[in-house]
Protein backbone atom coordinates (compact mmCIF):
# COMPACT_ATOMS: atom_id res chain seq x y z
CA UNK A 1 0.00 0.00 0.00
CA UNK A 2 1.14 3.52 -0.53
CA UNK A 3 0.30 7.01 0.70
CA UNK A 4 -2.48 8.64 -1.25
CA UNK A 5 -0.70 11.96 -0.78
CA UNK A 6 2.41 10.60 -2.51
CA UNK A 7 0.52 9.76 -5.69
CA UNK A 8 0.03 12.14 -8.62
CA UNK A 9 -3.49 13.48 -8.97
CA UNK A 10 -4.47 11.13 -11.82
CA UNK A 11 -3.36 8.05 -9.86
CA UNK A 12 -5.04 9.31 -6.68
CA UNK A 13 -8.31 9.74 -8.56
CA UNK A 14 -8.01 6.24 -10.04
CA UNK A 15 -7.52 4.72 -6.58
CA UNK A 16 -10.40 6.67 -5.02
CA UNK A 17 -12.78 5.72 -7.84
CA UNK A 18 -12.56 2.10 -6.72
CA UNK A 19 -13.82 2.69 -3.19
CA UNK A 20 -17.60 2.76 -3.84
CA UNK A 21 -17.38 -0.68 -5.47
CA UNK A 22 -15.35 -2.36 -2.75
CA UNK A 23 -17.19 -5.00 -0.71
CA UNK A 24 -17.16 -5.07 3.07
CA UNK A 25 -16.48 -8.28 4.89
CA UNK A 26 -19.80 -7.93 6.70
CA UNK A 27 -18.78 -10.68 9.08
CA UNK A 28 -16.22 -10.94 11.81
CA UNK A 29 -14.52 -14.16 10.74
CA UNK A 30 -10.89 -14.54 11.84
CA UNK A 31 -11.28 -11.73 14.39
CA UNK A 32 -11.60 -13.81 17.56
CA UNK A 33 -8.49 -14.63 19.57
CA UNK A 34 -6.96 -17.67 17.92
CA UNK A 35 -4.25 -18.66 20.34
CA UNK A 36 -0.63 -17.61 20.73
CA UNK A 37 1.43 -16.88 17.62
CA UNK A 38 3.93 -19.53 18.65
CA UNK A 39 1.25 -22.14 18.01
CA UNK A 40 -0.18 -20.72 14.80
CA UNK A 41 0.21 -22.36 11.41
CA UNK A 42 0.61 -19.59 8.85
CA UNK A 43 -0.05 -19.50 5.10
CA UNK A 44 0.50 -16.73 2.58
CA UNK A 45 -2.21 -15.71 0.13
CA UNK A 46 -1.06 -13.10 -2.37
CA UNK A 47 -2.73 -11.23 -5.21
CA UNK A 48 0.59 -10.82 -7.04
CA UNK A 49 -0.33 -13.29 -9.77
CA UNK A 50 2.41 -15.75 -8.82
CA UNK A 51 2.67 -19.37 -9.89
CA UNK A 52 5.19 -22.08 -10.47
CA UNK A 53 7.26 -21.87 -13.62
CA UNK A 54 5.49 -24.06 -16.15
CA UNK A 55 2.10 -23.68 -14.45
CA UNK A 56 -0.71 -22.00 -16.40
CA UNK A 57 -0.19 -18.24 -16.49
CA UNK A 58 -2.99 -15.91 -15.48
CA UNK A 59 -4.96 -14.36 -18.32
CA UNK A 60 -8.02 -12.36 -19.27
CA UNK A 61 -11.58 -13.55 -18.67
CA UNK A 62 -12.21 -16.52 -16.42
CA UNK A 63 -8.45 -17.09 -16.17
CA UNK A 64 -8.25 -13.87 -14.14
CA UNK A 65 -10.30 -15.08 -11.16
CA UNK A 66 -8.64 -18.46 -10.68
CA UNK A 67 -5.89 -19.20 -8.17
CA UNK A 68 -2.57 -21.01 -8.26
CA UNK A 69 -0.96 -23.25 -5.64
CA UNK A 70 2.51 -22.49 -4.30
CA UNK A 71 3.90 -25.51 -2.41
CA UNK A 72 5.59 -24.42 0.81
CA UNK A 73 8.64 -26.57 0.22
CA UNK A 74 9.42 -25.15 -3.21
CA UNK A 75 12.42 -23.00 -4.06
CA UNK A 76 12.09 -19.32 -4.92
CA UNK A 77 13.67 -19.92 -8.35
CA UNK A 78 10.54 -21.84 -9.34
CA UNK A 79 8.14 -18.97 -8.66
CA UNK A 80 7.28 -16.48 -11.41
CA UNK A 81 4.65 -13.78 -11.98
CA UNK A 82 2.01 -13.30 -14.70
CA UNK A 83 -0.02 -10.45 -13.19
CA UNK A 84 -2.02 -8.53 -15.80
CA UNK A 85 -1.54 -5.10 -14.25
CA UNK A 86 1.31 -2.89 -15.43
CA UNK A 87 0.75 -0.37 -12.66
CA UNK A 88 2.86 -1.68 -9.82
CA UNK A 89 6.59 -2.22 -9.44
CA UNK A 90 7.93 -5.61 -10.52
CA UNK A 91 11.63 -4.82 -10.17
CA UNK A 92 11.47 -5.54 -6.43
CA UNK A 93 10.03 -9.01 -7.05
CA UNK A 94 12.61 -9.60 -9.77
CA UNK A 95 15.35 -8.96 -7.21
CA UNK A 96 13.80 -10.83 -4.29
CA UNK A 97 10.49 -12.71 -4.16
CA UNK A 98 10.27 -12.05 -0.42
CA UNK A 99 9.33 -8.43 -1.07
CA UNK A 100 5.90 -9.69 -2.22
CA UNK A 101 5.89 -13.32 -1.07
CA UNK A 102 7.88 -13.46 2.20
CA UNK A 103 8.26 -17.23 2.33
CA UNK A 104 11.89 -17.18 3.54
CA UNK A 105 11.05 -14.71 6.32
CA UNK A 106 8.13 -16.89 7.39
CA UNK A 107 10.33 -19.99 7.50
CA UNK A 108 12.85 -18.10 9.65
CA UNK A 109 10.12 -17.04 12.09
CA UNK A 110 8.96 -20.65 12.32
CA UNK A 111 12.52 -21.87 12.95
CA UNK A 112 12.83 -19.33 15.77
CA UNK A 113 9.52 -20.40 17.30
CA UNK A 114 7.91 -16.98 16.76
CA UNK A 115 5.15 -18.76 14.84
CA UNK A 116 4.21 -22.40 15.15
CA UNK A 117 4.72 -23.60 11.59
CA UNK A 118 4.50 -22.69 7.91
CA UNK A 119 1.66 -24.15 5.86
CA UNK A 120 2.38 -26.86 3.31
CA UNK A 121 0.59 -24.85 0.62
CA UNK A 122 0.27 -21.14 -0.18
CA UNK A 123 -1.98 -19.55 -2.80
CA UNK A 124 -1.90 -16.76 -5.33
CA UNK A 125 -4.69 -14.86 -7.00
CA UNK A 126 -4.29 -12.26 -9.76
CA UNK A 127 -5.55 -9.06 -8.20
CA UNK A 128 -6.07 -6.94 -11.32
CA UNK A 129 -9.55 -6.61 -12.72
CA UNK A 130 -12.86 -5.82 -11.22
CA UNK A 131 -15.11 -6.32 -9.48
CA UNK A 132 -13.06 -8.01 -6.78
CA UNK A 133 -16.15 -10.01 -5.83
CA UNK A 134 -15.53 -12.14 -8.94
CA UNK A 135 -13.00 -14.03 -6.84
CA UNK A 136 -15.39 -14.93 -4.01
CA UNK A 137 -16.15 -18.50 -5.09
CA UNK A 138 -12.47 -19.34 -5.52
CA UNK A 139 -11.60 -17.55 -2.27
CA UNK A 140 -14.07 -19.77 -0.45
CA UNK A 141 -12.51 -22.80 -2.11
CA UNK A 142 -9.05 -21.72 -0.92
CA UNK A 143 -10.38 -21.11 2.59
CA UNK A 144 -11.54 -24.74 2.69
CA UNK A 145 -8.14 -25.94 1.52
CA UNK A 146 -6.40 -23.82 4.16
CA UNK A 147 -8.56 -25.40 6.87
CA UNK A 148 -7.62 -28.88 5.64
CA UNK A 149 -3.96 -27.83 5.92
CA UNK A 150 -4.72 -26.89 9.60
CA UNK A 151 -3.89 -23.25 8.87
CA UNK A 152 -5.15 -20.80 11.49
CA UNK A 153 -3.45 -17.59 10.34
CA UNK A 154 -3.21 -16.17 6.83
CA UNK A 155 -0.93 -13.38 5.67
CA UNK A 156 -2.44 -11.52 2.72
CA UNK A 157 0.08 -9.68 0.53
CA UNK A 158 -1.48 -7.41 -2.10
CA UNK A 159 0.65 -5.67 -4.71
Amino acid sequence: MVRLADLPEWERAHMLEKIPNLPQFGIRAWVAEGGPLAQRRVAIVTTAGLHLRGDRPFGQGSASSDYRVLPGGGGSADIVMSQLSTNFDRSGFQQDINVAFPIDRLRELAAEGFIGSVADFHYSFMGAGSPVTRMEAKAREVAGLLKKDRVDAVLLTPV
Binding site: D6, A100, P102
Partner: peptide, 17 residues
Protein backbone atom coordinates in the same frame (compact mmCIF):
# COMPACT_ATOMS: atom_id res chain seq x y z
CA UNK B 1 3.92 3.22 3.14
CA UNK B 2 5.72 1.39 0.33
CA UNK B 3 5.41 1.58 -3.44
CA UNK B 4 2.82 -0.72 -4.98
CA UNK B 5 4.38 -4.10 -5.69
CA UNK B 6 6.55 -4.14 -2.57
CA UNK B 7 4.30 -4.96 0.41
CA UNK B 8 7.33 -6.02 2.48
CA UNK B 9 9.14 -2.79 1.64
CA UNK B 10 12.69 -3.46 0.50
CA UNK B 11 14.10 -6.27 -1.67
CA UNK B 12 17.19 -8.06 -0.35
CA UNK B 13 16.79 -6.57 3.13
CA UNK B 14 15.78 -9.47 5.36
CA UNK B 15 15.88 -7.40 8.55
CA UNK B 16 13.52 -4.77 7.10
CA UNK B 17 11.15 -7.42 5.75
Amino acid sequence: PFVLGRPLGVPNDAAFQ
